[in-house]
């Protein structure tokens, strides 16, 4: 049996959660105050995921960079692979919030989308 101590990030409470697990099987989750905590702890131990936010190079726009995010979470261990793709991406203005800047980033099946409008100049 393995044991992991986690800080829940579901809300600003930051509950200290202890998870006992064996392989892919969760044996117990303790210390959480709500269902979000329970779900977070299970995911965090077995399949940790993150949203990656960064910027993408944009040409012909009012700004030199357009902020972006992965449209949903990606596996935590794909963060740097994802960043590598983002750092080499280039788009042209104009761009609107939600526009896909990179498709299927790092084979995660998740798109990188713009998080603000950048008008062309």
């Amino acid at each position: 049996m393995e044991k992991r101590n986690l800080t829940c990030i579901g809300c600003p409470m930051g509950c200290q959660i202890t998870v006992e697990f064996e392989g892919e099987e969760i044996l117990s989750v303790k210390g959480n105050t709500c269902a979000i905590g329970d779900k977070y702890a299970r995911n965090e131990v077995l399949h940790p995921e993150r949203t990656v936010t960064s910027t993408v190079y944009i040409s012909g726009g009012k700004l030199p960079r357009v902020p972006c995010k992965t449209a949903s979470n990606i596996p935590k261990d794909k963060i740097f692979e994802c960043m590598k793709v983002i750092n080499h991406a280039a788009v042209k203005a104009p761009v609107k919030i939600g526009d896909v800047l990179v498709e299927d980033v790092a084979g995660t099946g998740v798109n990188v989308v713009a998080t603000r409008n950048v008008e062309a100049v």
Partner: peptide
């Protein structure tokens, strides 16, 4: 503030600062 984590209370979803 291009990171996410904004708006959980206001919009019930997680937004980035610009969004």
């Amino acid at each position: 503030c291009i990171h996410n984590g904004f708006g959980l209370h206001t919009f019930k979803e997680e937004l980035t600062g610009p969004e």
